[in-house]
Simulated assay, not measured.
Amino acid sequence: MTDRGPTLPALRHQLVTAVLTLAAPGLQDDAFDPAALFSTLFTEACDADAPLPWLGHTLRTGEEAALTADLGTALHTLAGTLPPDATPADHLTSPAWPAVTTTAARLARVLVANDHHARAR
């Protein structure tokens, strides 16, 4: 693993929080706001459509970048199933939602493991 270390740790924290929220159905309650999470993943802390430039900024490894791209693809697939002006409930009941949570869970596991490994050194 080549750890490029995040130069933007506050944005890394936002990214990890967004991914964990998408990965954990228990966190998807009445206050769930997918728009804020998508904003984090596509503009603020990363670009899930093209994550490689974020290596060393908010992403630590190539594996994180690849999994972030997979999550971006799952989110675009989800968007294709939603009505205009979709509500949070529309997201959660979409047949594409399970793929989002599964993909986010894979990414969350790697993000947290990499952060733990980096702190242990």
Rank of each mutant, 00 (worst) to 15 (best):
M1S: 13
M1W: 09
T2E: 10
D3N: 08
R4G: 04
G5P: 05
L8Y: 05
L8G: 02
L8C: 01
P9V: 00
P9A: 01
A10N: 11
L11R: 10
L11E: 13
L11H: 08
R12S: 03
T17M: 07
T17V: 04
A18F: 03
V19L: 01
T21L: 03
L22G: 04
A23C: 04
A23P: 00
A24F: 06
G26R: 08
G26T: 04
G26P: 08
Q28R: 08
Q28E: 03
D30H: 11
D30V: 11
D33K: 05
A36F: 09
L37M: 03
T40Y: 01
L41R: 06
T43F: 13
T43N: 11
E44C: 00
A45N: 02
A45H: 00
C46D: 14
A50P: 06
P51N: 11
P53D: 12
P53N: 13
L55Y: 11
H57M: 11
H57K: 14
T58G: 05
L59N: 00
R60T: 00
T61K: 05
G62M: 12
E63D: 07
E64F: 01
E64I: 07
A66W: 10
A66F: 11
A66I: 11
A66L: 14
A69E: 13
D70N: 14
L71M: 14
G72H: 06
A74K: 03
A74S: 15
T77C: 09
L78W: 04
L78K: 09
A79W: 12
T81H: 15
L82A: 13
A86W: 08
T87Q: 10
A89W: 07
D90I: 08
H91A: 15
L92N: 03
L92T: 06
S94C: 03
P95C: 05
A96Q: 07
P98F: 03
V100G: 02
T102E: 05
R106I: 08
R106G: 12
R109S: 08
R109C: 08
V110D: 01
A113H: 07
A113I: 08
N114R: 00
D115N: 11
H116P: 06
A118T: 11
A118M: 09
R119V: 05
R119Q: 08
R121L: 10
